[in-house]
């Protein structure tokens, strides 16, 4: 059974998801640096993923929200492309200073993914802020 959601409700859901997801990804990064408990880190990841799912579902509400989505995706893609090129450079540089006892290759790959998601939310919000009066 299809539930018809009004245009405005979908737009509101999209923006709410964007805001909560952006906060969640920042909370995740802050939590990792502050060594939060695993369940707290898990919650931030869960909120981020739920937000991304909602954004995918509601991005096609209208062309304006789609433009916000595209802005976020473009920013995320740029970070992924840069990480693809520079992650090995960063890993090598980091290993030089930290020693190979703590190899950073895996960390760089994981970090790149989170940076891409962070860039997505930053790109979306920058486009949103620039489109407001």
């Amino acid at each position: 059974m299809m539930i018809k959601i009004s245009q405005d409700r979908r737009a509101t859901s999209f923006m709410a998801s964007a805001h909560f997801g952006g906060l969640a990804i920042f909370a995740y990064l802050a939590g990792r640096m502050a060594n939060w408990p695993d369940f707290a880190i898990g919650m931030t990841i869960g909120i981020t993923l739920a937000s991304l799912l909602a954004l995918i579902l509601f991005s096609r509400t209208d062309e304006y929200l789609l433009s916000l989505w595209h802005a976020g995706v473009s920013a995320g893609f740029i970070v992924v492309a840069l990480a693809f090129v520079y992650a090995p450079v960063f890993a090598g540089w980091s290993d030089t200073f930290l020693g190979t006892a703590n190899p950073t290759q895996a960390a760089a790959a994981q970090f790149a993914g989170m940076l891409a998601i962070l860039a997505f939310y930053v790109g979306l919000h920058v486009r949103w802020l620039r489109s407001r009066a």
């Binding site: 245009q7 737009a11 509400t61 929200l65």
Partner: peptide, 16 residues
């Protein structure tokens, strides 16, 4: 227009 209110606001302000 079958768009969101946010879209109308962005168009009116010339941002979209």
């Amino acid at each position: 227009l079958d768009v969101s209110r946010q879209a109308v606001n962005a168009i009116e302000t010339g941002k979209h």
